[in-house]
């Protein structure tokens, strides 16, 4: 029952031995179809997982490097407090740049909720100041203290309370993608095991004749293992290629499209789906091998 022998036989191929097991049968078609479909789904699960990972990183990076100061003050003081806040920020280590949003920018932010004709100047809308951090970042607690002293109406929002659940959600999505991938591979193993058992059962006469003429169980098992491994490799190869084409045909990533249009592979990530067919072959190899020896042990 040498695994090395099986692998060598698999790579080398044994034309005569391969002919001994009949080629036809539902199990052959089932293995091809299941491997193909599962590889197709696996490509999407992988794409989802990678996209979620990128999203989590992007959100973490984007939100971590910017923060907002919300300034509420009587109309007469708002301008003075804005300058005071900007002055504090200018002197704060870790702040790269800071600027007050114009009325037009604030209107644009509120437009999705209140429409295009919002009279921002007539409403008690707080002034927003965008702060861009250096990679090292600033001391949020210290900045809050200084703002409280210089501009009592200023509230620092460093996005921490927004960032944490977003990143957690993206991480959870990545985990779900990986779990889906594992489930797909486990289902592939289960289906191939069933197909192999069905093939062995339907070839009971072949097994009986082979044993009668002196075939060892290792030899019989190898004939089936080779057959199923190659079918799984072929089916998964086709499924993975189709999956990659489908992913490539998805709309390209765009700012406004956010997550859904970014569900693809980028750069070297396109190489990852190519690992799916060999992985399917490895799963088929072990699933068939275990099923074959178990079935052969059951046949006297």
């Amino acid at each position: 029952m040498s695994v090395a022998g099986d692998l060598i036989g698999l790579l080398k191929g044994e034309a005569q031995a391969d002919r001994v097991v009949p080629r036809s049968g539902q199990a052959a078609k089932l293995t091809l179809a299941v491997s193909g479909a599962m590889a197709f789904l696996a490509v999407f699960a992988l794409a989802l997982s990678l996209a979620s990972g990128r999203l989590a990183d992007r959100w973490a990076e984007a939100l971590a490097q910017s923060s907002t100061i919300r300034l509420s003050a009587p109309e007469a003081e708002i301008e003075a407090q804005t300058w005071a806040v900007l002055a504090v920020l200018q002197q704060t280590p870790g702040v790269d740049s800071a600027r007050a949003l114009s009325d037009d920018e604030q209107r644009a932010l509120l437009e999705p909720w209140f429409g295009p004709d919002l009279p921002v100047a007539d409403l008690p809308v707080p002034r927003l100041i965008e702060v861009i951090e250096t990679p090292e970042g600033y001391d949020a607690a210290g900045l809050r203290q200084r703002l409280a002293a210089e501009a009592p109406g200023a509230v620092l929002d460093d996005h921490t309370r927004w960032r944490a659940p977003l990143i957690a959600a993206a991480d959870r999505l990545r985990l779900l993608g990986l779990v889906s991938l594992m489930l797909i591979l486990a289902s592939t193993a289960a289906m191939i095991t069933l197909a192999a058992q069905a093939a062995l059962a339907s070839n009971e006469q072949v097994i009986r004749v082979m044993r009668l003429v002196g075939a060892r169980d290792t030899y019989i098992a190898r004939a089936f293992v080779r057959r199923f491994t190659r079918r799984a490799l072929t089916g998964a190869g086709m499924g993975a290629v189709l999956g990659m084409i489908a992913v490539a045909l998805l709309p390209s990533a765009a700012e406004e499209g956010a997550f859904l249009t970014g569900l693809g592979f980028q750069g070297a990530g396109w190489l990852l789906p190519l690992a799916i067919p060999p992985l399917a072959a490895v799963i088929a190899f072990w699933a068939t091998r275990i099923a074959a020896f178990r079935t052969l042990r059951g046949l006297r």
Binding site: R211, L212, V213, G214, A215, R216, D217, T218, Y219, L296
Partner: peptide
């Protein structure tokens, strides 16, 4: 065992 049975059958024509 099964392997030895196989080898034995290679010496027996049935």
């Amino acid at each position: 065992d099964r392997d030895k049975i196989a080898l034995t059958r290679q010496r027996i024509g049935v």
